[in-house]
Design a protein around this nucleic acid. Structure first.
Length: 498
RNA sequence: GCUCCGGUAGUGUAGUCCGGCCAAUCAUUUCGGCCUUUCGAGCCGAAGACUCGGGUUCGAAUCCCGGCCGGAGCACCA
């Protein structure tokens, strides 16, 4: 019996069909419990500029803040003096700015060290934290067997005393641990470290502090103090969320909603910030915005729109399963935006100069082509056709008739190029390939930096002298590229994609 | 190894919680066609997926068990 018949049958005997309460959901899923004002945070470690992975967190937080009219806090987590790269503070805000991510407040954790000390002391007083002198390996051995270390039994007073002395202790001599469950089935959760001594000078606070909080400690304290309602983080923090839960419980704090998303991988760029830094130091990469890197600034330099990145991140969402994103996907999204925005120009790379033979006088003229075929109001570019042109060698490879766009048709034979005819109809009848060209006696020297950092040298049409740095154009039959720099009379473009 | 978590077209997603409207959504991709002028653009069209095996059920992408594959964590980094 199919559903329809069953339904009829059921109605006959007086049954009721329960209504479905599913609601169609578009785009990002809703946040759980969005009632009380949503407060979110984006909390990067200042070890370098933002990369595509950061963009996910930043964009998602930003989108939710917009949806619920909430508040976004930027919190810079610089509690490990060894992992702070001073220029990063500035780069992070620049990158967020490019992404169009707005935040209402900014905190820097190294400004808040004394505050963490206060809470450490409170935890000790509650008997929820203890000073531990065990060498790391020793503690691990005990912990892995669910055996509490001797320090765990210290009295509050003894702990307070040791905590007071920590200031003068050497690195590694003692740590402050948060009590969890020493028999927790996941050994990683058992009695984690909250405070340790670091003898490195901090780029911002110098030698003012020697005791620094661990990420799990400062994050939990700050998330509570800042009233964070939802924590969006990668699933690599799954265990950390559970660790932090113990701190909330000790303090009697209400837990925010934790949302974990999966890992993001990009084909080609698998470079971590530290690898990138090393590559830059060794001169392998030109800088943080080298086109081969997955940093926000590298992506921006190539003419990728921040809107494309936003759309991508919204599409990927907060799923916990991992995603592999391809450049092709980004290119596709970006092309949708660029297609309308970008004006068209001729560029010929690896150009070959060609003097077309037997060109009749009357076809020599200034060719006009629209800046954009769909938006004629934008105007026209002017390209003088004198019979002397640069063409792409690929187009000359086989003997055939070519149409130089809006100019003339030429016959290619054994590398020699002869005038063939003039009209488009003639070219069409021959199914001639239509190609771009640049006058060899009137042009602009141009270099295009490709995604693999190789450089294609060539010439672009004269009207490109009207372009300004930052503008993204479509080089017909070549692809989209962003004007990056003008050196003397030479244009340097960064290639985006076809 | 231990703890935890995933697996829908090439890729990214919707649907999974609350089984039937799912012969499964949308995007990208690929392929084909069109275009009085970009065959690397645009427009139109098509292709392509529920990890496998059992079970429960009238009915399973959806619930249960197991296998396989993948991922994360197992620090005095964040």
């Amino acid at each position: 019996m199919d559903l329809k018949h069953q339904t009829l049958e059921l109605e006959k005997i007086g049954g009721k069909i329960e209504e479905k309460k599913k609601v169609e959901q578009k785009g990002l899923v809703d946040l759980p419990q969005p009632h009380k004002g949503v407060v979110l945070r984006f909390a990067p470690n200042p070890s370098g500029p933002l990369h595509i992975g950061h963009a996910r967190a930043a964009v998602l937080n930003s989108e939710y803040v917009d949806r619920y009219q909430g508040k976004l806090i930027l919190r810079i987590e610089d509690t490990d003096p060894r992992r702070v790269d001073p220029p990063a503070y500035q780069m992070i805000s620049e990158d967020l700015n490019w992404l169009g991510v707005e935040y209402q407040e900014t905190f820097i954790q190294s400004d808040r060290i004394p505050l963490y000390y206060d809470y450490a002391e409170k935890l000790i007083n509650k008997g929820a934290a203890y000073m531990c002198n065990c060498p790391g390996g020793e503690f691990k051995k005990l912990k892995d067997n669910s055996i509490p270390c001797p320090c765990r039994e210290l009295s509050v007073d003894e702990n307070l005393l040791k905590w007071g002395q920590m200031e003068t202790m050497a690195e590694g001599e003692a740590v402050l641990r948060i009590k969890t469950d020493i028999a927790h089935k996941n050994p990683a959760i058992r009695d984690w470290v909250a405070m340790r001594v670091v003898e490195e000078e901090h780029p911002r606070t110098g030698k003012r502090y020697r005791i620094y909080p661990m990420m799990n400690f400062s994050v939990a304290v700050d998330d509570h103090l800042m009233g964070i309602t939802h924590v969006l983080r990668g699933k690599d923090h799954l265990a950390n969320s559970e660790k932090q839960k113990y701190l909330y419980d000790h303090m009697g704090w209400e837990l925010p909603a934790f949302i974990h998303y999966g890992r993001l991988k990009m084909d080609d760029v698998a470079l971590s910030t530290s690898q990138a830094r090393q590559g830059i130091a060794e001169g392998m990469y030109s800088g943080w915005d080298d086109p081969r890197l997955g940093t926000i600034r590298a992506i921006a330099r190539r003419g990728i729109n921040s809107q494309s990145i936003k759309e991508l991140m919204q599409e990927i969402g907060v799923k916990i399963s991992d995603s592999i994103i391809s450049w092709k996907k980004i290119y596709g999204l970006n092309r949708n935006i660029l297609e309308e925005k970008s004006n068209r120009y001729f560029f010929v790379g690896d150009a070959q100069e060609v003097h077309i033979k037997n060109v009749p006088e009357e076809v020599l003229r200034v060719v006009e082509r629209p800046l954009h075929p769909d938006f004629l109001k934008r105007g026209y570019r002017k390209i003088p056709f004198t019979g002397k042109v640069y063409l792409n060698p690929d187009d000359l490879e086989q003997d055939q008739v070519l149409r130089l766009m809006d100019a003339v048709n030429v016959k290619v034979e054994n590398g020699k190029v002869d005038y063939h005819s003039h009209t488009f109809d003639e070219a069409r009848a021959l199914k001639a390939q239509i190609v771009q060209w640049v006058p060899s006696d009137s042009n602009i020297s141009t270099e295009v930096v490709m995604p693999d950092a190789s450089i294609i040298k060539g010439w672009s049409e004269p009207d490109c002298d009207k372009l300004t740095v930052g503008e993204v154009v479509q080089m017909e039959r070549f692809g989209f590229a962003r004007l990056d720099e003008i050196i003397d009379d030479k244009l340097i473009f960064y290639y985006a994609h076809p």
